[in-house]
Design a binder for these strands. Structure first.
Lengths: 205, 205
DNA sequence: AAGTTCGGCAAACGACTGTTTACTGAATGG
DNA sequence: CCATTCAGTAAACAGTCGTTTGCCGAACTT
């Protein structure tokens, strides 16, 4: 890649980082072009060399944020083992993911129901594909014998929704008091065990 | 109440309604004082006769929105009956509540993780009290014999989180296509039955 | 009936906004 | 080495913004 392209991508990165940083206590709809470029150390006009809109910057951030999420799910499902270990590992991976990607996760939580349609739809579409991936993984487990496609899908959605809630809870808990993070983790494990138990006793639909 | 107070409250109501209406496709942080007063048919300065901040208007909206929520939960728990009927009724009440209070529910979903700290905290505090109420109701059911206080609390939180997710799903589904609402309802019932099943088979913690 | 309270208004303040324009200068390609 | 591309700039555009000020007049109080 030429030096020209490299410098351009560096500026683009600066814009994305500046946006992510400002979105820590603000939402996308109230973000300003001048605000972002000021934080990134560029002139206002430079923004338009990279994005037509602030919504476009938002969509770019969605893609970034959820790319790391797909890596996460694989790292959980890759490890075979009993249901208990799987649950423990899943909760731990979520906790760690939130800790390491706090700005991205906060962005997702904030814009999932936020004011920018394009971004909302991008997040929902990606979470849908996410649920499909989880559903496919669930289908491979022996516990799922006799389950219809639809039931598996609804179970996967339950898991994904629970993961989202848990991640959001970690987000707010750890900002205030790291000890509260333990409470969240304990509750999440309990809830997952409960669901897993219901799953084992499920008899058709 | 004097005619003076009555007219004042009428203006206050106009401001709240204008805010709620504008927040349909916007979030609180990007809302403007002039915007609200223009929509309410008042002068900008009039706003400050009622609220010091836009955040204060937001908190007032939170209280309004969650008052109707408490009414809802009671209407579900009041009706005794089998687990199946209870689930069906709960999902139906949620669906109906979203339909009838769409602006309030949308506001809550949007600001739960939004950019205004005061409002976020108000919502979380109220949802916490909500979970406590649900937990107390669960404790009265025969199925909960032998359950610790902590386990009941975590179960209640699972139910509340699920309710929030379901409400948000109804919100976005029914705006696009009312038939999708049926899909949401079916999934929600399935998931609640699964949780209820796990609950019956739970043996201590 | 006279005096007071107070919700609402118009106007003005400086500051900030998104976006376009014409221009600069360094990396690119021949 | 010369021509071209193009990321970044400064300046200007016409707005909107939040908030304060002084004032009005209708509803209250006494």
């Amino acid at each position: 890649m030429g030096a020209r392209q490299a410098q351009k991508q560096q500026s683009r990165r600066a814009l994305l980082d500046a946006g992510l940083h400002l979105l820590a206590d603000q939402n996308l709809a109230s973000l300003g072009v001048r605000e972002v470029t000021r934080e990134a150390g560029l002139s206002p006009a430079a923004f338009y060399r990279h994005f037509p809109d602030l919504a476009a910057l938002g969509v770019a951030l969605v893609e970034e944020s959820l790319a790391s999420l797909h890596v996460m799910i694989r790292s959980v499902l890759a490890e075979a083992g009993g249901a208990e270990e799987l649950i423990d590992r899943a909760v731990e991976v979520i906790r760690q993911h939130v800790e390491e990607h706090r700005p991205h996760v906060r962005f997702l939580a904030r814009e999932r129901h936020g004011g920018v349609r394009q971004v909302r739809e991008a997040i929902d579409a990606e979470l849908g594909r996410f649920a499909a991936e989880v559903g496919a993984a669930l289908a491979l487990q022996p516990v799922s014998r006799g389950w219809s496609e639809q039931d598996l899908r609804m179970l996967a959605e339950l898991y994904v929704d629970h993961m989202v809630s848990t991640a959001a809870a970690f987000l707010e808990a750890q900002e205030a008091d790291p000890a509260r993070g333990q409470r969240i983790a304990t509750a999440a494990r309990f809830q997952l065990r409960l669901i897993s138990l219901g799953r084992r006793h499920w008899q058709g639909s």
